[in-house]
């Protein structure tokens, strides 16, 4: 992960650079149904991340050779806007976003009842408007809301959450400085109902104990994010959130 820097990411009181505790999430705001022309959509603000997701389909998959006669294919596209980072990002898919699109597609495929829509494609567009570390997990969270909004049958909502290691301490939900100058980052996608993991990546070095610790921390936080997802979905229809 990045280079060693002189900045201290954890102060003497054990607080992080933005004043958070090691197991504290950044503020998260979710909104559903923001893109009128899409079948389903969602907007997520996660700390400094601003992410929009839109779902189209299920619709007949073209080109025809990508069709699967038994199930729907899920095509997620993760894309970063050129203005989403400090230094202008060259627009278009690069190695990183192609990889993320692939792993996000696979994570989403695992929750959708794909066998209900043979020969079709479900397109999920994830646009990162502003990036501040942890965009893939915020993107997965937004995609999950957009899929539910599109009326696509799913086994569970899916929650993205990251943990990592900074200055030798295992912390939850890294921000940009921690991501750049920390030691490790572990993004995860979790199915909160069963506690299954749909995506697990690690960038950096951690011991087995630290990784287990980080995963448990993310699991714990997933429950909180799950509650926010339910609130965002039900709140849109004036439903009883606590039900």
């Amino acid at each position: 992960m990045g280079m060693k820097a002189d900045i201290r990411l954890i102060d003497d009181n054990g607080l992080r650079i933005d004043g958070r505790l090691p197991n504290q999430l950044r503020p998260i705001r979710m909104e559903v149904g923001v893109v009128k022309r899409a079948d389903g959509s969602a907007y997520v603000e996660w700390g400094g991340n601003k992410i929009m997701a839109a779902v189209y389909g299920p619709r007949e998959a073209y080109p025809k050779h990508v069709q699967d006669p038994n199930r729907a294919i899920v095509r997620a596209r993760y894309n970063m806007a050129s203005f989403s980072v400090d230094e202008r990002k060259r627009p278009g898919p690069d190695r990183r976003s192609i990889e993320l699109s692939k792993v996000i597609s696979e994570a989403l495929t695992s929750v959708i009842f794909v066998e209900k829509f043979p020969r079709t494609a479900i397109d999920v567009y994830i646009e990162v408007l502003q990036a501040d570390a942890g965009t893939r997990v915020a993107g997965i969270t937004a995609a999950s809301l957009a899929l539910a909004d599109a009326g696509i049958p799913m086994r569970d909502l899916i929650v993205g959450c990251a943990a990592g290691k900074v200055d030798g301490v295992v912390v939850l939900d890294l921000n940009k400085e921690e991501d750049n100058y920390g030691e490790a980052d572990v993004p995860m996608a979790i199915l909160p109902r069963t506690g299954e993991i749909a995506l697990l990546q690690m960038d950096g070095d951690m011991t087995y104990e630290e990784l287990t610790n980080a995963m448990e921390m993310a699991m714990e936080a997933a429950r909180e994010i799950y509650r926010m997802e339910i609130e965002a979905l039900k709140g849109r229809y004036g439903g009883d959130v606590n039900e």
């Binding site: 929750v111 539910a148 049958p153 799913m154 086994r155 569970d156 909502l157 199915l191 909160p192 109902r193 997802e229 339910i230 979905l233 039900k234 229809y237 004036g238 439903g239 009883d240 039900e243």
Partner: peptide, 13 residues
């Protein structure tokens, strides 16, 4: 305030 039917989300028991 209108009375609203029970709303469920995917994966809700």
């Amino acid at each position: 305030k209108k009375r609203v039917r029970d709303i469920v989300v995917p994966g809700e028991e």
